[in-house]
């Protein structure tokens, strides 16, 4: 069995209304995929494809309507035991909304440490936060600052430090660089790659940017309107896309060709 198993997951959202019968919107239809340990699975899709819904189900903050997800042998759901959550973390799209503006960097990074009781005592926590900040290319005294004192790229580093703090095995990256400038994007993507090889992390990388996918992914799935329409290894998908939609996406992507 693979490290991450998504098995026949569907998700229906019910629009509740007082006066009309409830209508279901199917955001995901029987999505199955698996991710090997230490690899990056890129999920490509446009807005409304259901990729964020799948991310929320995979990290256990939303439940599937049917089907199941397991990571490292544990069943994933909103009611899963807290200790199983340690292995799963997430890095978000917005460097602004993903950090509570009222919290200092130290508290943001230390929150998972406290939640899982990873470090004992203030001193150990400070030391671990310092290590984490340095690991993502920030400095120890950045811990005292607030998020608004950092640039977008630096905030993404803070998010990554926070995600790493619970020593996860699996990280969902939800468009982690789509709000960043190109030169900063390269820094963050390289950091994620370095961390993957250093710590043996497994990534589910959600994006709409095919050039980013090309540099990050081992395996690629294309999601369209809740259906996984194509799944191939990275090399095969770019060389011979099977589905028309994938071909259209590749054709439309404004990728820089230097040659």
């Amino acid at each position: 069995m693979s490290f991450v198993e998504v098995d026949e997951v569907s998700r229906v959202f019910h629009k509740r209304s007082l006066f009309s019968k409830s209508q279901g919107v199917q955001a995901l239809k029987n999505v199955s995929l698996s991710i090997q340990q230490g690899e990056t699975y890129a999920l490509v899709g446009e807005s409304g494809s259901g990729k964020s819904t799948l991310a929320r189900i995979v990290v256990g903050v939303d439940n599937a309507s049917s089907g199941q997800v397991s990571i490292a042998g544990h069943q994933i759901s909103t009611s899963m035991p807290k200790e199983n959550r340690r292995d799963i973390q997430m890095v978000f799209q917005s460097p602004y909304a993903s950090l509570n503006p009222r919290w200092r960097v130290h508290d943001l990074v230390a929150e998972p440490l406290r939640a899982f009781g990873i470090t004992q005592g203030r001193k150990a926590t400070v030391q671990r936060v310092t290590e984490l900040l340095e690991q993502v290319g920030l400095q120890a005294d950045d811990a005292r600052k607030f998020p608004h004192q950092f640039s977008g790229g630096q905030r993404q580093r803070i998010s990554i430090a926070r995600a790493l703090s619970s020593n996860p095995k699996f990280i969902v990256c939800d468009e982690p660089t789509s709000a960043l400038d190109v030169s900063v994007q390269a820094q963050v993507l390289n950091l994620l790659k370095d961390l993957q090889s250093e710590l043996g992390l497994t990534y589910l990388f959600i994006t709409h940017d095919l050039a980013v996918v090309k540099t990050m992914a081992h395996q690629i799935g294309v999601l369209k309107q809740g259906v996984l329409i194509e799944e191939q290894s990275a090399d095969d998908l770019f060389a011979s896309p099977q589905h028309q939609y994938t071909k259209d996406l590749l054709a439309a992507a404004p990728v820089l060709s230097v040659a």
């Binding site: 799963i88 978000f92 503006p101 009222r102 939640a115 998010s159």
Partner: peptide, 26 residues
Amino acid sequence: QKEYITASRLIGLSHLNIMARHILPN
């Protein structure tokens, strides 16, 4: 609806904890 709330939920914090420590200061 902001992502930092999801970030706290995925590490298993209770709703009460999130309301008091994350939303209240804002």
